[in-house]
Each structure stands twice: as C-alpha cells, then as structure tokens.
Nucleic acid binder design. Structure first.
Lengths: 233, 233
DNA sequence: ACCTGAACACCGTTCAAGT
DNA sequence: ACCTGAACACCGTTCAAGT
C-alpha cells in the first residue's frame, strides 16, 4: 500500500501551512503526495470531508492541554493536590480551592476560560486554522467533544455562546493579521488607527503577524470576560 | 448605457436567492444580466468586491428598523413621546423612561438587543445571507456603521462581542436549516435529538426551514441575554 | 462607457482501467 | 487496496477589440 488516510490528512495540512486555505486544492494535495488527484477519492469522499479531518487534527489535544493548564494555575494560589490531568469526568467537579469565596461554579468558569483560550491559540497557530476549524465545527454544532466538555462546566447555552464567540473572534484575528502581513509586504502602513501621525516608522523587524500589537488578544480576553460574567449572574 | 453597478448587484442578489452562495458565480451573474462574464469587470474589480456590495445591500436599513422597533416597544410600558426614529445621534442618549429602576445604560442595552435581533433576522431572510454578510463584515471589523452605532450604546468591546456572536449564531442557524431542508428532501428525519423515539412522525407540512422548531431562535435570545448581562455588570 | 470573444490557468469529481 | 489517465463541467480573471 502506498498511502493511507493519515498520509492524506498530513499532506493536506502541509499544503495548508504552505499555501493557505485558498491554495489547498485537491490537486495540490495530490501533488504533495506524488499522486494523481483522483487517487485522493479512495481515501476521502470529497473535499469537505478532508477539511473536517484536518480540523479534527488541528483541534486535537486542546481539551487535554486546557485541563493541564487549568490544573497548574490552580496550584499557584493555595490548593494542595497536584492531580495529573485526569481522563475526563475528573474535571467535571474540580475541587473548590481557589481564593476565598470561590465556589465550584466559579472554578468551572475558570476552566472554561482556559479551554477557550487554548482553542483560540491552537487555531491561530496554523495558517487559516480558524476558518478550517470553525467551518467544520459549525457543521456539527451540538455534537463536538469540546462543546460537551464546556457544557459540563457552564451549561449548554454557555458552551455554545463561548464557542461561537471564540471561533468568530479567532477568524477575525487571523484575517486581520493576514491582511496586515500582506500590507506589510507592500510597504504600506496597514494600521492607521487614527488619521494622523504616520511619518517615518522604519518598522524595525516588528512582531510577526502571528503575535501582534493589534490588541486582538486583549480584546478576546475582554469579550470572554463579558460572557463569563454574564454566565455567573 | 446598458447596465450600471446597481443592476449588477441586483442581479447578483437574484442569483444568490435562486442558487445560493455556491451557485453565485460571476458567470451566472453575467448570464442573469444577459452579458458576457468579462463585462462584469467594468463595474466591479473582482468577485469579493461584488460580495461586499451585496452584503451592504442586505444589511441596509437594519439600523433604522431596529431604532424604530426599539422606539415602539418603549411606548408600551409607560413613556410618552413617540419620537420618530431620528437620523443618528438622536438615539445616542435615549431618554431613560422604561420601568422603574431603569437607567440610561439599561435602555441602551435594550436598543442594542433590538439591533442584534434585527440584524440576525435580516441576514436569515436571504439565502446564505449570514455567510455573505459575516465574511464581508469581518473584513472591515472596526469600520462598519453598525458597529459604531452599537459601540455608542454598549461600548467598543460590547459591540464587537455582540456582533461576533450575532454573525456566528446566524451562520450556524442558516447552515443548520439548510441541512435540515436538504435532509427533508430525502425523507430523512434529520433531527434525532436523542437515540430513541423515532417512529411514525408524519411531519404534517411542518414549518418552513426559515422559521423553525429547532430552537435556534430561542438559543440566540439566551446567548444575547448572557452577553448583555455580562455588559451590565 | 459598456460590452464581446477568446483565451489562460485553474477547479472538484467521475470512471474505466490497471496492479 | 491503491492508483493512473483521461475526461466532464465548471471556475475567476485578463485583454485586445469593437460601438
């Protein structure tokens, strides 16, 4: 056997990283594999299915990483047990041991926050990742593992609201940064938050388009706060 | 002169309604106008620009309708002045005259709620409208009239959060309903909220895919509530 | 100003046929 | 099981040329 499904998905992810979603055609994925385009249809029924598999791959491990991060941040304040990130329901009722006055619902919201942050930064880490994941996720909204995990923490409505916001904000961030990167290639200022003061800024090897002075990370944090505050009421 | 830009946009919207976003190609729009594809490039630089113009057309009037609706709903409780929907800043500081205990911030949040509801139902009213508008809007996030109006009511962060949620939830609703409609054509149940009880439901001329038993409208209302509650804190 | 005709460089998908 | 070769029915966009 020459290629398996995982080879196809891996090749597709390589093309995505190199050419972006627009350049991620079936023909290019086939070329990456050194194979005729028609060969792909032995592994996958159509392009949409391939994109869904790519999305699954991109998003894999978000839950586990978020749980770990949440557990670590809980060690800092005052709790005792280190507790290696359990396999699932261990997190359903995490011990209420944060600062004084925190109940289990508040802890759950903190974990939910970690999951959204981890999801967003994971999507942002691969080129056009937010688009790929959001489209595939929207297709089976109400049937994803991540939504179920979030639902146990903040309820169904909370989970849906958080996910919709996280996907949308990530898509926006990625689109904005790719536009900025494109503009930077042309030597254009691309920012212009005000119609004044734009003279000689040499742009001395400024931050990469993946990690930003655009304030979108902070804006995401504030939006998350709004939603989590609303859920606490 | 044979066709103007508005003719092109109108034709494109007709094709969108008839064939959906997928079928809305430059070639089909040209055919709708009885013209060669290349002729379109005299009115529009590329397809993306045409889609942006279509989005503007779809979303036009949302602000005015929302203001009118908000004014009407304010008459019911106890306020006096009918005040025909002003042209702009008249709504910036609406009189605080709702039920007892309401301040101007609460009234502003109510108006913001109307705007999001109006925006959503407007997008849902045209085939694939949510996709068209959301994509175009994401492109100039931070530069749309609607965002500015919302920002005056609930602040910049509130406006962005509300818009991202409204776009995303509308896209999801529209995708879900189109899938349901497609499934219905095949005679499939398409719902299956649980793995039990699915015997003989004759589906007696059920609601159109535009107006729904799927609970997505109510889910939107609840998500909006969460965000607005968070903004009130 | 508005349009035609023809072309360029692509798409996703299908299908008989090979090994 | 995995792949080739060839085709089908499309795309968005460009460009000289017409009126």
């Amino acid at each position: 056997m020459r290629n398996s499904l995982v080879d196809v998905v891996a090749a597709a992810l390589r093309v995505l990283g190199a050419q972006g979603l627009e350049g991620c055609s079936m023909r290019r994925v086939a070329a990456e594999l050194g194979v005729q385009p028609s060969a792909l249809y032995h592994h996958v029924p159509d392009k949409q299915s391939l994109l869904a598999l790519m999305a699954d791959d991109i998003v894999a491990g978000v839950g586990a990483r978020a749980r770990k991060r949440a557990a670590e941040s809980r060690e800092v304040p005052g709790a005792a047990g280190s507790r290696p990130a359990g396999t699932g329901s261990a997190v359903t009722r995490p011990m209420a041991m944060g600062p004084v006055g925190s109940d289990s619902a508040e802890v759950n919201r903190r974990v939910a926050r970690c999951m959204c942050e981890e999801l967003r930064s994971t999507m942002l880490a691969t080129r056009d990742g937010a688009d790929v994941v959001a489209t595939a996720a929207a297709f089976r909204m109400g049937a994803s593992d991540l939504e179920d995990e979030l639902a146990e923490l903040v309820g169904r409505d909370g989970a849906r609201t958080l996910l919709i916001y996280t996907f949308g904000q990530a898509q926006q961030t990625q689109m904005h940064r790719q536009a900025a990167a494109f503009g930077a290639l042309l030597g254009a200022p691309a920012d212009s938050s005000g119609p004044a003061a734009r003279a000689d800024r040499p742009d001395p090897a400024g931050p990469s388009p993946t990690e930003s002075t655009d304030g979108l990370d902070e804006a995401f944090a504030r939006g998350l706060d709004v939603i989590l505050t609303g859920l606490a009421a």
